[in-house]
Design a protein around this nucleic acid. Structure first.
Lengths: 242, 242
DNA sequence: CGCACACTGTGTGCGCCATACACAGACCAT
DNA sequence: ATGGTCTGTGTATGGCGCACACAGTGTGCG
C-alpha cells in the first residue's frame, strides 16, 4: 500500500527502494553505518557511539550520516537489526520446550555478544526485518501446542522478557574483566552484609548466609529460571488442552 | 566496620554521618535533590533531568549539586530510592501467591507513576535503604514455602524481571496521551500487516488476525503473565516439597 | 543531447550537557 | 580568636545531537 508512511530507515532495511534518484550515488548503505556503530559499541559500550565517532569510523563528516538516518534513534534501529542477525533454525527440534530453549539461548548469546543492546532506549515495538524474523521464530516454537495465537504471543514475550532481564542483571553489572567482576560481587556482598542487618532484614541475611554468588553469570542460574518460566507456560498449555 | 568505603551518597541515604563538620551548613539534603529531580523526570522523562535543571529547580548553581553527589549516576541512585518509597504491607496476606502479587502490583504501580525508572541505567545491584526494604519484602513473600533462600531470591528476581519487562513494554511505548497511544498501536499493527507478509511470517500473521490490541496496557494482560510466572514458581515449590 | 533539479557530502555554528578547577565566604573545634 | 574545612559560586573545557546553507554530482526528461 502506501509504504510512504514508513520511516526511511525501515524502508532501507527492508530494501524498499523509493523512486529512482538523480544525484550522486550514496557512498554506503545503512548497514555499513550500523556495522561501524556496532564496532564502536562492542568496544566501548553504547556511550562510545556518537554520530561523530561513527562518521569518523567511516571516514566521512558527522553530518553525512544524517543523509541515511533521521536521528540517532534511527541509528539504534539499524544497530539492533544488524546485531541480532537471524535466529537459529529449530526445524529439527522435537517439542516446543526444545525450540523455545534454543531460541532463548540464541537470544541470550546475542545479548552477551553485544551487551550494549540492553542499554538501547526502545520507544517503539520492533519493525525491522531481522527482529520480525526472530519474532516469527519465537511464535513458531509453540506451533504444535493448543495455545491460541494470542497465548503464543504472550508466551514468547514472557521468554523474551525473562532472557532480557536475567541477562541484563549479569551483563550490566559484570561486563568487566572476570577477576574484577568477582571483586565487584565480593564487594557487593560485603556491603550488603553491612547494611542489611539481621534484625531489620532477616530474609536478605538468610540469603547471604548461603555461600552462593549473589549475582551470578552462571548458565545454571539461567536454565534454572528458564525452566521455571517454561513450567508456567506448560501449566497454561495444560489449561488450554482441557 | 569500615563504612568509609561506602560511596558518599549511600552514607547519606542511610543516615550514616561522617565526623562532625566545620564549615557552612548544607542548604539541603540529598533527598531534596532527589525530589527535585523526580519532579522534573515525572514531567518530562529522564532526559529532562540535567544537573543544571535540577539545580535551577532548587535555586542553586549547577556545581553546588556536586557537593552532594559525586556524579550524575549518584543522582539516579537517590531518585530511585525516593521514587520507590516503601513497599506495601503484606502481613495479612494468606499465602505466598497473595503476598507476591501484592508486591508485584505495587512495583508495577511505582513504575507506572514514574515511567522514567525504566530508563535509568543501572550498573550496580541496589544498596539504598528503600530498595533493600523492597527486596526484603519480596523475599518474605515466600516465607512459608519449602523454597531455599537461594530459590526465594531467584523467584523474587523472576517476578521482578517480569514486572519490569512487561510494564516496560507498555510504558516505554505508550506513555502518551491515551488517544495518541491508541493511534500509535493502530499504526504499528498496520505497518506490521504490511511488512509481515503471510508467506514469510505466518505466525505473526495469525497473531494479527485476532482482533486484539497488539501491545496492551490492559491489566488483564499483566495478571495473565503474572499467573503464568507464578505457576512456574508453584511447580518449583512442588518439586522442592517432595 | 543538455539541462534542471534532486540528492550527496561538507563546513559552520548553536545550545545543551557533565564536570574540572579556583575561589570567597561560613562555621566548628580548639 | 583563629585554622582548617566545608559550602556554594564563577568560569571554562570538551563533547554531544543536530539545524542550515552550500558546492558538487549524476539521472531522467525535454
Amino acid at each position: 500500500m502506501d509504504e510512504i508512511e514508513l520511516p526511511r530507515v525501515l524502508q532501507q532495511l527492508w530494501g524498499i527502494e523509493g523512486r529512482t534518484r538523480p544525484g550522486p550515488k550514496p557512498a554506503f548503505q545503512v548497514g555499513d553505518i550500523g556495522r561501524a556503530a556496532i564496532k564502536l559499541a562492542d568496544a566501548g559500550g553504547l556511550s562510545a557511539v556518537s554520530m561523530s565517532k561513527v562518521a569518523a569510523e567511516l571516514g566521512v563528516t558527522t553530518m553525512a550520516l544524517y543523509r541515511y538516518v533521521e536521528a540517532k534513534d534511527d541509528l539504534y534501529v539499524v544497530m539492533l537489526d544488524e546485531a541480532f542477525g537471524l535466529p537459529p533454525d529449530v526445524s529439527d527440534a522435537e517439542d516446543w520446550q526444545q525450540r523455545i530453549t534454543t531460541w532463548a539461548e540464541a537470544f541470550r548469546a546475542a545479548l552477551q555478544e553485544h551487551p550494549w543492546i540492553l542499554q538501547v532506549p526502545v520507544f517503539e515495538p520492533p519493525l525491522s526485518p531481522n527482529q520480525l524474523v526472530w519474532m516469527e521464530a519465537g511464535l513458531r516454537a509453540f506451533e504444535d501446542t493448543p495455545l491460541t495465537p494470542s497465548d503464543r504471543l504472550s508466551a514468547m514475550l514472557l521468554v523474551n522478557i525473562y532472557v532480557r532481564g536475567t541477562t541484563g542483571l549479569s551483563v550490566n553489572m559484570l561486563n568487566l574483566p572476570p577477576h574484577e567482576a568477582a571483586a565487584a560481587g565480593e564487594r557487593y556482598a560485603r556491603r550488603l552484609r553491612m547494611l542489611a542487618t539481621p534484625d531489620r532484614f532477616p530474609a536478605i541475611t538468610a540469603t547471604l548466609e548461603q555461600p552462593q554468588e549473589f549475582i551470578d553469570n552462571d548458565p545454571t542460574e539461567f536454565y534454572f529460571g528458564l525452566t521455571t518460566v517454561l513450567d508456567g507456560v506448560q501449566s497454561l498449555i495444560s489449561r488450554r488442552a482441557t
